[in-house]
Amino acid sequence: MVTVSETVEIDVDPERAFDYLDDPHNHAEVTPSLSDVRNVKSIEDGSKRLEFTYEMVGVGLDGELVQTIHQPPERHTFAMSGTLEGEIDIELEAHDDGTRLTYTGTYDLPGRVLSKAAEPFVRRYNERELRTTLENLKSRLELSE
Rank of each mutant, 00 (worst) to 15 (best):
D19G: 02
L21Y: 02
D22S: 12
L50P: 01
D13L: 01
V40N: 13
E9A: 01
H27R: 15
T53R: 14
A17Y: 00
H27S: 06
V30E: 00
V40W: 02
E15G: 06
F18V: 09
H25G: 13
R16C: 13
T31H: 02
D23G: 01
R16H: 09
N39Q: 07
N39E: 10
Y54E: 05
F18C: 07
K41V: 15
P32C: 12
N39Y: 05
Y54I: 11
P24E: 14
D23M: 04
G46L: 09
D11M: 02
S42W: 04
P14F: 04
N26D: 02
P32D: 08
A17W: 03
Y54W: 13
A28C: 07
T31S: 13
E44V: 10
H25W: 00
P32M: 06
V40H: 15
K41Y: 08
A28V: 14
V12W: 01
P24F: 01
Y54R: 07
H27T: 10
D45M: 14
R16E: 06
D13H: 04
E15K: 11
D11Q: 09
R16Y: 12
D45I: 15
R16I: 08
S42D: 11
V30W: 03
E15A: 08
D19A: 08
V37K: 03
A17S: 07
P14W: 02
P14D: 10
D23Q: 03
P24N: 00
L21Q: 02
N26G: 03
G46W: 00
F18M: 02
D19S: 03
V30D: 04
S47D: 06
S35L: 04
D36T: 09
P24T: 07
F52W: 03
I43V: 12
K48D: 06
G46F: 01
D13G: 10
V8E: 03
I43Q: 15
D23I: 04
D45K: 07
D36F: 02
S47N: 08
V12I: 07
D13Y: 00
L34V: 11
L21P: 07
D19R: 07
T53Y: 13
L50A: 15
E29N: 06
G46M: 01
D36E: 11
D11Y: 09
D19T: 11
D22E: 12
G46R: 02
Y20T: 03
